[in-house]
Design a protein around this nucleic acid. Structure first.
Lengths: 108, 108
DNA sequence: AACTACGTATAGGCTACCTATGGGTAGGAA
DNA sequence: TTCCTACCCATAGGTAGCCTATACGTAGTT
């Protein structure tokens, strides 16, 4: 097992989820996902920023330029109502599919 | 939620797993995965056969032409030792990543 | 005669990710 | 002073892996 990656299709779900606790800027989102997963999940910048762009287009988040604690210009992302709805839907879908996969893997 | 799909990256794992119980032909593999998942997981033919080709190339399975119970020519796939090893590795990896995703989703 | 279930297989396209690259600031180490 | 690391945003280009559509063909039912 070379390295632990992301299960494709879960990136946006994870981002929506960490934003549920409050707005964060891009770099902090990646940090948080890494931290919460004991660094098993590593979100690359080249994956994250395009995903955030898509989420902006879809209206799931909105962005504002602010100053970070370290005095840098950061773009802060905040969940919208549509984003919360999307999160609920993706959460439910992930759970269902994951249960289904487990029941195949167990060969009940 | 339009339809329940496959979590990308799990198809080969699922196929390896159902073959662990014994050889099956392509059509039966798809049936079995559907059945075990209460039809939540639906493996399309255009996904399955290319995946089986890849598995043949990798040496994870070998194939033999046989006659099915319904008297049709079927190609029966059987796990190899390399396939069993691959299954173990993918199983462990899936478990680890899935745990990691869950700990992010729970926001422990 | 038409339709459904059974069966194998490929071409082409799309989505979503990764790698590589580019830009730039602040702070500490050498 | 220069280098390195951590902090930050962002895009271009490639690739993997799945889906849709299509093709071919048999057996049994309506």
């Amino acid at each position: 097992m070379p390295k632990a990656e992301l299960v494709p299709g879960t990136l946006i779900l994870l981002v929506l989820r960490v934003l549920q606790s409050g707005p964060l800027h891009g770099y902090a989102i990646a940090q948080r996902i890494g931290q919460l997963s004991s660094d098993i999940l590593q979100v690359e910048e080249g994956s994250l920023y395009p995903a955030l762009q898509k989420m902006l287009l879809k209206g799931w988040v909105k962005a504002e330029w602010e100053l970070s604690e370290t005095k840098r210009r950061v773009r802060s992302y905040r969940l919208t109502a549509a984003g919360r709805k999307q999160l609920e839907a993706e959460l439910a879908n992930y759970d269902q599919v994951n249960r289904a996969i487990k029941s195949v893997l167990k060969l009940a």
